[in-house]
Design a protein around this nucleic acid. Sequence first.
RNA 1: GGAGAGGUGGCCGAGUGGCCGAAGGCGACGGUUUGCUAAACCGUUGUAGGGGCUAAAACCUCUACCGAGGGUUCAAAUCCCUCCCUCUCCGCCA
Length: 488
Amino acid sequence: MDSGDWRSVAPGYAARSNGQSQSASKSRAAAAVTHIEICASLTPHKADARFPQVPCESCMHDLRQLRDNLDGIRTQLGPRGRDVPWDDLRKLLDERRNLTTQVEQLRAQLKRGSDEIAQLKRAKQPADDAMTAMKAVGDRIRVMDEDLRGLEDRLTGLTLHIPNIPHPSVPKGQDSGDNVEVRRWGTYPTIGGTPRSHWDLGEALGILNFDRAAKMTGARFAVLTGAGARLERALINYMLDVHTGRHGYREVLPPFLVNRASMTGTGQLPKFEEDLFRLREEDYFLIPTAEVPVTNLHREEMLDEPSLPLRYTAYTPCFRREAGSYGKDTRGLIRLHQFNKVELVSFTTPSQSDEELERLTGHAEAILQGLGLPYRVVTLCSGDMGFSAAKTYDIEVWLPSQSVYREISSCSNFQAFQARRAGIRYRPAGGKKEAKPELVHTLNGSGLAVGRTLVAILENYQQSDGTVIIPEVLHAYMGGMTRIQKDN
RNA sequence: GGAGAGGUGGCCGAGUGGCCGAAGGCGACGGUUUGCUAAACCGUUGUAGGGGCUAAAACCUCUACCGAGGGUUCAAAUCCCUCCCUCUCCGCCA
């Protein structure tokens, strides 16, 4: 082959099963479902449990921490917090506290009064005066309660729009130009002549078609056929097998539609609704990533500490509206409204999450290494990170046709951000009497974006005759096929 | 889609208007006993918010929470309405 000998760097893949030890503890944890208080309403006109379900007292930071340390949080957020109306927030927090205190005092009064009435009645004494008085108190409470509810709705609305605080190790910066490269792996392939783009190669090989996808659906969709479809499926199976077999993840096949509460739990809502596809008749959304359903596996649950870390891997298609990306990556498979992805999701204790991010990133890298695709890892700067992340590594694969590294995986530690919004907690094990539930830390990463992996294979393994060599680890998944030729 | 039965704490489960944050059991934690383990016995054990105390906790106190939301009432786990979810039967469907 004429693509160099760098492939020998790649370690061979040996399937082993060491994932079962987790399953027993997992079912224990799954049984430990708890129902926590839910109230805040984002769609206040519909009393439908599918819609809001946002834990109201715990939207972003706990409100006490937010109130006590508003300026500190503002400083830590830096430019990420520029859209937050800090003054309104402070005012709302104070107003809520004042009103809460008043309402609760009135309620205590009402409770005492009602108890007295009960005693009078039992003693067969007249209680009309007390009942009249308590009716007045009750009416006052109802009025104030309504005000308080309005305050809390506004407060929830604000806090749900505050992004996560960057991890201390995250470089400060404005945009992708300030990201920091961490490491590189692999060697660039030697390609005779000018490297062809994957769409050029794929269409010539008869395995990739965009016109027909546009016909049946629209722009930013693709059809894979023949060896192309087979290669996509092979990659999905290879990735899942490595993650379940070698890396110890538990496979999940979740729903591809989720409700509003799940989207809010992981942070896609309320801020990024325009990026999502939504059904017309139901308040369901097509998932933009498996992170959403898989993280929400444990929404509003109490996990056992011994069951942590819980590691899941899931293949799902992903659906994104790509609003605002007009003109970007208009050709090829790089940016589609629908693409396949194998995702890694992890739930850990707070003390383990830093280490888990490194581990998880390594698991994603292992796929690229197995496939012999050159890549680099970059740490996103504070300005380039997603809304919910505390720290993110992007893995970028080498694309010879463009001579650039393109994102193929994004691995993030969300710390307690998603756990707080989604109510995912664990009870610390053992210890002394201290066993207060704590929020877990959640992490996830692509392991990998399948379509982009197919792109990288086509481009990095292209031969001067227009055929494409199939990486060795996929041969078995391809029914023995070792090379993609025209129309196979 | 039609008919019915349900949803209570970490788990199971009692509770049909006040003395119920909720019996009883399981689990967990602490202790007694024990050569060790087990058993037995005694005790503790929900979450969140406000206030007080504090460097912070512990702690004290008030309030809320029995699927969700609303209503009736002086007072709701309990009565009424709407919704969600689960289970059973029928229909339809892969």
